[in-house]
Each structure stands twice: as structure tokens, then as C-alpha cells.
Amino acid sequence: MPRLYGFDNQALTRVRGQERQVVREAVSRIRAGQSQAEAAAWMTAEGHRGTMGGEWTSMTLGRLLDNPAIAGLERDPDTGELRETGREALITPEEFRWLQQRPGRRGGIRSIERREDDYEYLFSDGLTVCADCGQRMTGSRTGAGTPSYRCQSNFEGRGGCGKIRINAPRLEDHVAEYILGELARPGAQAALEAARKSMAAEAQEGVVRIAALEGKRTELAAPYAQGQLSRDSFVAADRRIGQELRTERARLRYLEQAVDVPLGGVEDLARWWEHAPFSTKRGLAVLLLEMIEVRPARARGVRDVDDRVTLTWRTALAA
């Protein structure tokens, strides 16, 4: 069986750096508006070939982009829900979900479904947390299709209480007002640069920890293969390391958003925010904020968000 493009081995524990960059560039092109066929044509024109030596087509690229392993994910066999594996990835889970939901997508298990307009959640991936249980909130549509942030419990019983949900556009507009206020303060640029430097150092420490955990995972194989470690002990140790890897990789993705954001002077902040790239707005939010904490609504049906949200600021400037 041929290896999956971007990975060195069948266990998907080692990536090929050059192939990962090719996949990331292809995904970036698709997100920028190119078709899947155009992205595949670019890969072929640049001399990139599949693992069996064939040229890339819309179909072969589509099969690769439909595989959750490229985002460090897998599907639960019973529920079909995506869950993190703790393995190294070619793209982020958010990018993978966007690829599955993008307008005009062909092929894959969801191609025959009518999809809602895609919504990019600005404050997901660990920034927004549930005040009741401390679990990070994720983007999730309501039964009526409204984008929201929700505290979710998952199929293995991990996760949060599953009780709190808040309208995504209202929360994002509310937090954006405060972010713009902080950006308008004197000295904001210097404070952001200091925050970015600190987070870049933390990100590098995370890379080292991930490499060490991957080494431990690899070292487990030898004693298990030689019969020195029982299957139960091997599975338990591998699961524990996998959980640590999931935590470290999620934190690293979170930090990288802030490290990569461009910083520069902007005169009309409100107008700039309205049209700024999604990645820039999210990166600035991560630089400025440690946490967006969401409390339960006062009563069922209450839509106001002001008294439900507490912002914990990262920078020394923020109050």
C-alpha cells in the first residue's frame, strides 16, 4: 500500500517537510479562490508528483484533502466525529474542516449535502472558554443553522459540560470593540511586539517538547515488539503520550497564529478591522487576549452578550 503523500511512514508519525509545504501551498491557493483542478495543475507544473510517481489531478488531490490524517485527525468509527490523534499534521484541523465545507466542493462523503454558507470562527482554537467548566469552546451551528460557540462534551466523555452556547457574530462584534480600543492606545505597537517575542519563545519550547514526546512514542515500539511490554501497557502509554501531543500541538497552533501576524500602523482602525484578513484579526486577538470567558445567559432566550463575557488581557497596556 503506498504511503500517504506528505508522510514518511504508514504509521503517519513522520512528515516529509518538502511535501508538507506543497500541501500547505495547495490549500492556501484553494482558500484564496483557485479551484482544486488549478491547485493540482500548479503542483504538476512545479514538478511535484504523487507517491506512485503520477501527476496530480483534481481527483487525486481531492482524495488527499479528504483524508483527515493530513490534519492530525481521525473519524470515530461509531459516530463519525473528528477527533485529534496527536500525530504530526500537514495542515490545521480548521483548514481541514474548511476544505470539507467549502462551496463548490466535489467528491467526498458530504458532496451530496446542501451546505450552509461557510463561517470562520474568529475566536475558536482555545481562546474562548466556558466559565462553568473551563473547557475551550468550539464553533458549532445551532439547530437553526446559526453560527455559535459551544462548550462541547465528546464521544469519549472528555471535554466540557456541554451547557453553554453563545451567538458567534454577536460575541465577535463585542470583543472586536474592545480589541480596537486597545489598538488605539499609545504604545500599543511596542506592547504587541513584546507579547509576540514572548510567545515566539514559548512556541519554540513547544516544538522541543513535541519532538521529545514523539521520541518517547517511537521508543515504545521496540520493547513491545520484543515482548517486554504487554499490549495493554503499550496501548495505555501510547494513549497517554498521544493526549500530551494533542495538547502541545493545539497550544503550538494557537501560538503560531500570534507569532505570524503582521504588525503595522493603521489610521482608521474600525475600517481596517472590517476588511483585515481573517488570520491577521485572529493573530491580533491572540496577542492581546489570554482568554475570552463566556458565562451562561441570565435566562433562556436572552441575546445580550455584554454581561456574559469576561476578557483576560495579555499585554501590559490592556486594562
Rank of each mutant, 00 (worst) to 15 (best):
W42K: 02
E267C: 06
P77S: 11
L311E: 04
H275L: 15
E214W: 00
G86M: 03
V208W: 03
E81C: 06
W56R: 03
A26G: 03
K197Y: 07
R170V: 07
L245P: 01
R185G: 03
R105G: 01
P68E: 02
D125Y: 06
G187F: 05
Q100N: 09
E248H: 13
T128F: 02
R303A: 15
F7H: 02
S279N: 10
T280H: 14
E19W: 01
S279C: 10
T128V: 09
I166H: 04
G54H: 05
L180F: 10
E25G: 07
V207M: 14
L64N: 04
G17H: 11
G86P: 02
D8W: 01
G159E: 01
Q226P: 01
M1G: 11
K216T: 06
D260W: 00
E274I: 08
R114G: 12
E256M: 10
N167F: 11
R295S: 14
Y5G: 00
E290L: 13
G6W: 00
M291D: 05
L263N: 02
A37K: 10
R75W: 02
T138A: 15
V129P: 00
R239Y: 14
A89M: 05
A32F: 06
G126S: 08
H275N: 15
A316C: 14
A201V: 13
G107Y: 03
V294M: 10
R49L: 07
Q100V: 06
A195P: 00
R295G: 10
W272H: 12
A318Q: 09
G187D: 05
Y254F: 14
L289Y: 04
T138P: 09
Y119S: 10
L4T: 05
Q152Y: 11
R136G: 04
F7K: 03
L255D: 00
A144R: 15
Q204E: 15
P77D: 08
A45D: 04
A69M: 08
S28K: 14
G283S: 12
L61S: 03
D268M: 12
L183M: 08
R249C: 05
P77A: 13
K197D: 14
W272V: 05
A37L: 12
E177I: 13
R83S: 01
E84W: 04
R115D: 12
G139Q: 09
R249Y: 03
V305H: 10
R115N: 13
A250M: 07
Q228N: 12
A299I: 12
R209V: 14
F123C: 09
R87P: 00
